[in-house]
Design a protein around this nucleic acid. Structure first.
Length: 375
RNA sequence: GGGAGGGUAGCGAAGUGGCUAAACGCGGUUGACUGUAAAUCAAUUCCUUCGGGUUCGGCAGUUCGAAUCUGCCCCCUCCCA
């Protein structure tokens, strides 16, 4: 159990389960609920640490599988840990590689002992056991580290979900036993697919093990929205009030706000940065594809209501030009905007919780932006 | 003046009698993306009132059938004088 890590819950919304608080970590405090940008290989793609911080993000992610492959955890450790390595002086979290068990399904083999991956870079055989993952994460040195799990695909049979979830629980225990560093918080991950009894069982068993925080996994991997929302409930109902709750892989407005309403404290997603690089922006006027011809001579800002560097300084015509010309600067400006947009919405959510008007805030935002086009 | 090669959709470039409205690449347009194998992927790109119409430098032929074969003409590139 980490000594420098705890969640201070300062207010619970009177009309929902949304809560506002401060997550204390060895690398600083973070207001929650929060959205965490993803920096898989030790970089939020295209952005500098200063830019990421300037956008208002509290925690950023890195990935155990990817850093293990390149440059290798020993290099990161020699550099003095991930924060020093990438010159990011703030809280960080490493995902365990459990998502890669899902996303690299064609390149891995799951056994009780662990997972054998065929490196997506050069085909090397990589073996990840729960203990090995913790060892790597301790060398990487993030403030929050995740247990090794299997992110269960959707849909899957009850039998598959049950076997996988029980194994993930055994892995969680093995990881917990292997975890030595006291300055790192270790989170357990609730799996169970779409099955209520499995989610409940998984959550309860993890809670018995007493992790520093709990995350809800196996979400936003292609399942219908209502299924995802149910999965959140199925898990969160059995999680302790005082520990942080992290909803994994969620990055569109409707999912983020629903998660917050259900009492989630942390969320992460590649969506804002990835779609920005691909030319799609989240704005106060809805979804924008900046490559569209109609913006060719549009000399207005991307989003009049946005306070980001991009919107304060550049026009849609210029952003389109940069995108179409495949300029790195364009990807950076668009990433800055999407992250700032999402984080500002979450800031608004925190303020609304403090004033007991979260439901109104959520409805207002969803009515305005969360239409069928979604984010 | 002599010799050689070549003109195919916005561009480059395959195709050398029917399976060809014509491969492929680029460019253009549109869409997708949710714990990052993602500066990626997908669709579409002659016209159309969706029945069809008009194409492979031009014209005239051969043939049941031509981008593909023949004749003449126009244009481009290179070499020699």
């Amino acid at each position: 159990m980490s000594k420098n890590f705890y969640l201070e819950i300062l207010h619970v919304d009177k009309n929902s389960k949304a809560r506002y608080g401060i997550l204390h970590t060895p690398h600083g405090d973070v207001e929650v609920p929060c959205f965490m940008p993803v920096g898989t290989v030790g970089s939020v793609k295209t952005l500098s640490p200063e830019e990421v911080k300037g956008i208002g993000s509290g925690i950023i992610l890195a990935n155990t599988y990817h850093l293990h492959l390149r440059p290798g955890e020993d290099i990161v450790a020699k550099a003095g840990g991930i924060q020093k390595f990438m010159n990011y002086n703030g809280p960080m979290l490493t995902d365990s590689g459990g998502f890669q068990v899902f996303s690299l399904a064609s390149k891995r083999d799951i056994k009780e002992e662990g997972v054998t991956f065929k490196s997506h870079l050069n085909g090397d055989k990589i073996f990840f056991s729960p203990e090995k993952v913790i060892e790597i994460e301790e060398k990487i040195g993030a403030d929050i580290i995740m247990s090794f799990d299997e992110c269960i695909p959707y849909p899957v049979s009850y039998e598959y979900a049950k076997n996988s979830t029980l194994r993930t629980l055994r892995w969680a225990k093995r990881g917990l036993d292997a975890h030595k560093r006291e300055d790192q918080a270790l989170f357990g991950i609730v799996q169970g697919g779409e099955f209520e009894d499995l989610r409940k069982m998984c959550a309860e068993e993890l809670v018995k093990m007493n992790f520093d925080g709990y995350s809800i996994g196996g979400t936003s991997i292609g399942e219908p929205k209502d299924v995802c929302f149910k999965m959140i409930d199925m898990a969160i109902n059995y999680l302790p009030f005082e520990k942080p709750r992290y909803l994994m892989g969620v990055g569109s407005l409707d999912y983020i706000l629903e998660g917050i309403a259900k009492g989630v404290d942390m969320m992460d997603c590649v969506l804002p940065t990835r779609i920005a690089r691909h030319g799609t922006l989240m704005t106060h006027n809805g979804r924008v594809n900046i490559k569209n011809e109609k913006y060719k001579e549009d000399f207005t800002p991307l989003d009049q209501e946005c306070d980001c560097y991009t919107c304060k300084n550049f026009t849609k015509a210029y952003l389109r030009h940069l995108y179409v010309s495949n300029e790195a600067f364009g990807q950076r400006l668009l990433s800055i905007h999407n992250l700032r947009f999402l984080i500002s919405i979450v800031e608004g959510a925190r303020n609304a919780i403090k004033e007991d008007r979260f439901n109104e805030y959520k409805d207002e935002i969803l009515k305005k932006y969360g239409d069928s086009r979604g984010f």
